[in-house]
């Protein structure tokens, strides 16, 4: 359908952003292809080695999935920060990702969890890491007729993973001034084997801070003190490239990155220690 209609057609998921763009005349289309008819893209499934979230899964369905896995519980808490209950029933996970706002709440969490986008195209499926999926403000790795099918979150074969998310906002129903998500993977002995820190609203894309992992990886969970978390936050702030705008100054955002990273890591540790 999309290939027949070309650029004058656009996929329509929940439509909660698209209706507004349409009404403001910021998009001009002949056709919108309503994906709500694709019920098969509305799912959440937990396997031994991965969690799969269908692109048409609504934010409210994600919110209700908290009991299925502790990573879903983290994502569920994030959805509660997003829009309102009666808009979360419409808005979809895939639509939120394809809108590619650098301040989106779920995006840094998916990047921190090392999730992959599964993309459907004319030639079949391909996988792109969520980090590479975001190419700019409202720009994704989707090309031509391609469609986001699923977000796939890998789970460690041995050991455990936990993720945390923190944001600074002005009020509820607001977008993040700064946000950060981190994920820690530990092996059976409690040693940190992997740490991923992702930052939102501090660049046109989600920033993945490799240096923020340095103070964490290789240490045992019990040895992670406040100084280690602060060092990670400090390192992450060096990777942030925030702008000053009407909502916050660049300096404030950079300072808050340190705090958000530190707190999101503390959340991970708390979950891993149970």
């Amino acid at each position: 359908m999309k290939s027949q209609m070309g650029d004058r057609a656009k996929f329509w998921a929940g439509g909660t952003d698209m209706v507004l763009l349409w009404q403001r005349g910021e998009i001009d289309l002949d056709h919108c292809i309503d994906l709500r008819h694709l019920g098969e893209l509305d799912y959440i499934s937990v396997e031994d080695d991965s969690i799969s979230i269908g692109a048409m899964c609504s934010l409210s369905a994600l919110e209700r999935s908290a009991d299925e896995h502790h990573l879903l519980a983290t994502l569920s808490e994030i959805t509660k920060l997003m829009c309102t209950p009666q808009t979360r029933t419409l808005a979809t996970v895939g639509g939120n990702m394809c809108n590619a706002s650098p301040a989106a709440d779920l995006s840094p969490a998916f990047v921190a969890m090392d999730a992959e986008a599964i993309i459907l195209g004319d030639a079949g499926e391909r996988r792109v890491s969520m980090f590479e999926f975001f190419e700019g403000v409202n720009k994704t790795a989707l090309r031509g007729n391609e469609l986001l099918k699923e977000i796939s979150i890998p789970l460690p074969v041995a050991g455990n993973i936990a993720a945390g998310y923190r944001r600074i906002d002005r009020t509820v129903v607001d977008i993040a001034l700064v946000n950060a998500s981190s994920a820690l993977t530990v092996d059976a002995s409690g040693k940190i084997t992997k740490a991923t820190v992702a930052l939102g609203a501090v660049a046109p894309v989600i920033v993945r801070s490799e240096v923020a992992a340095v103070p964490l990886v290789g240490r045992s969970l019990d040895a992670l003190d406040d100084a280690a978390l602060a060092a990670s936050g400090e390192a992450a702030a060096g990777d942030a490239k925030p702008i000053s705008d009407v909502r916050a100054s660049a300096d404030y955002r950079r300072d808050m990155v340190k705090v958000m990273v530190r707190r999101s890591l503390a959340d991970c540790i708390e979950q891993l220690k149970g």
Binding site: G15, V19, C32, D34, R36, Q86, T87, T89, L90
Partner: peptide, 16 residues
């Protein structure tokens, strides 16, 4: 309410 779930009808297209 759409099938019992609350929806903001200002963000829904009528065909949906």
């Amino acid at each position: 309410l759409v099938d019992g779930e609350p929806h903001t009808s200002c963000l829904m297209l009528v065909n949906q």
